[in-house]
Structure formats: C-alpha cells, structure tokens
Write a protein that binds this DNA or RNA. Structure first.
Lengths: 144, 144
DNA sequence: TATTGTTATACTCTATAACTATA
DNA sequence: TATAGTTATAGAGTATAACAATA
C-alpha cells in the first residue's frame, strides 16, 4: 500500500477545490475576458515559443481537433498568429501576437488583484506551502 | 507590499498547472464519465446534504441558470433528484440518488488509480505538502 | 503508412435576458 | 419588492468520425 485512503481523498479534494477556484476566477471581469484554456495556451506559447497544434494538444491533454478550434477562435481575435513550418509542410507554428502578449498582461492583472487579496489572508508559511505545491502539481500532471 | 511578484506568479502557475491536471484527468475513461462540474456538485451534495439551485450556484460561483441546466441534465441521468422545500414553495432541494452515490464511487476509483500512480512518484514530504495545500486552496476560493 | 491538420456534428457548461411563481 | 426557478438564445471548449495533404 503506497498511498493511504486519506492521501487519495486529499487529491480529489484538491481537484474539486481548484475547480471551484478556477470557476470563481473566471467570473472576474476584465476589459477583455480570457478563458483559462486560452490563458494556459498563451502562457505556454510565451514560455516555450512557437508550437504546433499537435504540440499544444499533447501539452494540454486534449484532441488536436479541439485545440485547432480553440486556436482558430484565438487567431480570429488576434491573440495568436500562424506561420508555416520552415521544413515540414504539414505543420503550422503558432505564436503570440503583440496584442496577445499585451492582453495576457492586462487580464492577468485583474485576476492578480483578486488573488493578492485572497492570498494576503494567508500566513507567510501557508503562502510558501502553496508555492511549493505548484511544482508538485506540475509533476503530477506530467504523469503518463 | 503584501505579496511579492514571485508569489503572484506562483498562483497563476498554480491555476495553469491545475487546469492542465483537470484536463488530463477528464480524459480518463470510466464506465460512465462525469465532468468535473458534476463531480464537484456531487461531492458537495454528499458532504453538505440537500441544497437548492441557488445554494449550489453560489457555492460553485456560477449563475443560477447555468446551475439549473447542469442539474437538469444530471437529473435526466438519474444522478440527482429534486424535492420541494417543506416550507418555502419557491425552493427546490436536490439530493444524490443511490445511483448517483454509486456512480460517484466508481468514477472516483478510475481517477484515483491514475492519481495514485502519479502520487507514488512523489516523496512523502512532497505528498504532505500537497495535502496541506488543499485546505489553503479552499480558503482562497472562499474569498469574496 | 504515419503524421498533421481540417471539416462536420454533437454535447456540456457557461452567460445574458426575459419571464413566472412564491415570500 | 425581493427571491427562486425556468425558458430562450448564444458562445466556448470538448469529443468522435471522416477526410486531404505531406513526410
């Protein structure tokens, strides 16, 4: 027995709790609303650089068709742009536009205001625990 | 300055990372698939007891109309059932059906298998950090 | 053949707006 | 009036299935 029932229940709780947090944050209005799928895609494009539909679909654990639709909508809004792959004619590389980067920054601020207020209620040690947890959640997400 | 930039970035990362985790877990197939909205509603009904549409909408930070639609679909599937409020004729109380509780248990198992494997890769101290983080995320979610 | 991407169709969750019924 | 719920409409994100283009 590697994981106790208590441990497993805690992780389910983690997902339920974070699901709620995501929904609450989505409700925060901005000049230009971004969904969390869009936020995730834009964060990845800015951190990793140009990526194909297949890359992004794998990274976000959705089907390529789904990712294609989401990217098409974002392209329509001018948040991202497509560019043919230099050597592989099948692939299309997506990058953030200047407007995409700017929008990402602005929308981030509105959500950060709310988060900062919520965060300020926690003790410093608790804040540190949350920061440590981020890296662990990322590790778990990378599990096959 | 109560929160450092590093702290704020960490929380955004938390949301992006958990968003990915949620998407990955949704892809896990079961005999009967539940969305994470459904999982959250069912967890709440089992823990808190009978709740109205307005109660659940507030708890999950969505509009009553949205919650009404989701609950109607779940009722159609036999996961929840409605009952008039004993004294207030406007309100409707929702509870889990026996099938809802059973489904919740089964679907939970499939996701738990994946989580257990992912969890087993972490060190005990890291697992403990994640458990502690759950309560903190809940605290943050309760912020107005 | 295998991979990348597109098109078509459908379902879930969400929102806004306008409505009815009850307190 | 205020609150609880419903109905109608729309948009985003997801899935499956079938297809075309390229490697």
């Amino acid at each position: 027995m590697n994981t106790t029932p208590k441990l497993e229940a805690a992780v389910t709780d983690l997902l339920v709790a974070t699901g709620q947090l995501l929904r609450r944050l989505r409700a925060i209005s901005n000049t230009r609303k971004l969904t969390w799928s869009q936020v995730a895609i834009m964060a990845r494009l800015e951190e990793v650089g140009p990526m194909t539909i297949a890359d992004l679909a794998r990274a976000e654990a959705v089907k390529p068709q789904s990712m294609g639709g989401t990217l098409a909508a974002m392209e329509e809004e001018g948040l991202v742009e497509r560019r043919p792959h230099p050597t592989d004619g099948r692939q299309i590389l997506f990058t953030l536009t200047a407007d995409g980067r700017e929008t990402r920054r602005k929308v981030g601020l509105a959500k950060q205001e709310w988060l900062s207020a919520a965060f300020a209620k926690l003790k410093p040690a608790e804040q540190q625990t949350l920061i440590s947890a981020v890296e662990l959640i990322r590790k778990i997400s990378d599990h096959e």
